[in-house]
Amino acid sequence: MVSEDIHSKEGIFRLLSSICDPEIPVVSIEEMGMLRDVIFHEHSCEVIITPTYTGCPAMGIIEDDIIALLKQHGVQEPKVTLVYSPAWTTDWMTETTKQKLRDFGIAAPMHSSCSSWIKPANAHVHCPRCNSKNTKVVSQFGSTACKALYSCNDCKEPFDYFKCH
């Protein structure tokens, strides 16, 4: 087991970087932008997280995972606090993170400015398999709250698109 400095924010962040969103196992909660802060109190350590969607059913598991991992590393009285502000956005994902999603078969989110709904932008979702932009929406709502269902007109594969949010 790699020992991390459990008394610094950076150490805790490094430790928690092994925890993934259970529904997208290639990206950590830090890369997703859900891990916001760590606050040290006199006798406890408080981890601040934010949900992707208000009803995200993965939050309970993520909270349990964080507490279990911190306890395993000797952190005294770890606790997790859920905050809604600032509201999570896919714009917090780095290009590296987006590439991990693509490699996993999920089209990465476009910048949130794409979702102008009065006049839908001429933005194209690229197929994560063949990179074609000749794709179509099958359903705005996919297998999880954060994804939409697309299919590629060229390679004919269906795929998930991580909605910009």
Binding site: P51, Y53, T54, G55, C56, P57, Y84, V138, S139, Q140, F141, G142, S143, A145, L149
Partner: peptide, 20 residues
Amino acid sequence: LEEDLAMTNLALDHIGRAQA
């Protein structure tokens, strides 16, 4: 099937906000 998923996604968002 796609709309079945959509309806449950809509439900989830509503219940999530209700919880908050």
